[in-house]
Design a protein around this nucleic acid. Structure first.
Lengths: 160, 160
DNA sequence: CAGAGAGAGTTGCTTCAAGCAACTAATCTC
DNA sequence: GAGATTAGTTGCTTGAAGCAACTCTCTCTG
């Protein structure tokens, strides 16, 4: 992706993408989830231009998604860690991973597996109804305007 | 986001983002999930440039994520529907939505709610272990090289 | 049957973000 | 004090997105 600024849209997805929808951002977060935390490591691992990486990191820190913490003085060096807000992006990354595994994995199979540290099982896939606890797929769900919907959105939804 | 082409990366996330990581793509899919299916409606609703929208739709159809089906003859007109491959992107969209609701929702509350058609409950959030069925968060999971990992990835993982 | 209008794009130009390479700066090692 | 390490910054080029105007096909209205 490119820019932020899907202006005038009253939508949480658009707002989320303003923050993490720029090119490289999700891949930077993936690397940090996987334990790559320093500028040069990120740069080498991703192959992203250094100026772009610097811009992304600065943005993510500014938004409170990453935290820049020193790992040594003299010379002062920092690494980038995920804040809670950043950790909460984990499901987004995982869903992309699982979709990619299914539809765009190399023929040899998925390059990364996510295993339950406790029992060694692999991560499954399910969304669940908060009331009846049934797993829900696209077909089971209806979108309706929420408390923050604009009048226009609400009326659009009614006519559908 | 911008371009496709996170070359040389052996990673399902990068591969997924090559397909759906361009600017506007996810928002196009969101609109189609929500029932907006025609060129002009998408264009108006998103505020995206028409040439860009045309390029995205063509790409998505080419990748088998969308299908272009006629909804009338004379004049021949098409609408864009999600294929199974496209429907499987639903969890990605949902996770972005939920993250956006939590961290970037308008003060009035989320603009969209997803409700279980069956029971009227709202969509919860949980990832689950396929073996022991426990819900898993970031901390419960370890990434390890999968069958398709490159030698370099496998050795990187071992040194972590 | 002429003119307006809807729907779905296409074309050409401008602007702005990403790619690339080279440079800076602080410190440690030999 | 020469070279390596880490983390950027600067300046220029390339390429994608924004914008407006145009096209084309058909339908509808007077």
């Amino acid at each position: 992706m490119l820019g932020n600024d899907y202006k005038q849209q009253n939508c949480s997805i658009a707002r989320a993408l303003e923050l993490v929808g720029e090119r490289w951002t999700i891949l930077v977060l993936r690397d940090i989830f996987l334990g790559v935390r320093r500028f040069d490591d990120l740069q080498r691992n991703l192959g992203v231009a250094r100026n772009v990486l610097a811009a992304r990191l600065e943005r993510l820190v500014g938004e409170g998604i990453l935290e820049k913490v020193p790992y040594q003085e003299r010379p002062l060096r920092h690494e980038y860690l995920l804040s809670d807000k950043g950790l909460d992006l984990w499901p987004v990354v995982v869903e992309l991973l699982q979709w990619g595994d299914r539809y765009a994995a190399p023929s040899a199979g998925p390059p990364i597996l996510l295993r339950h540290k406790g029992c060694g099982g692999v991560l499954g896939e399910r969304r669940i109804c908060s009331d009846c606890a049934q797993p829900l797929s696209v077909r089971d769900v209806r979108a309706e305007p929420g408390p923050g919907a604009s009048a226009r959105q609400a009326s659009l939804a009614r006519h559908r």
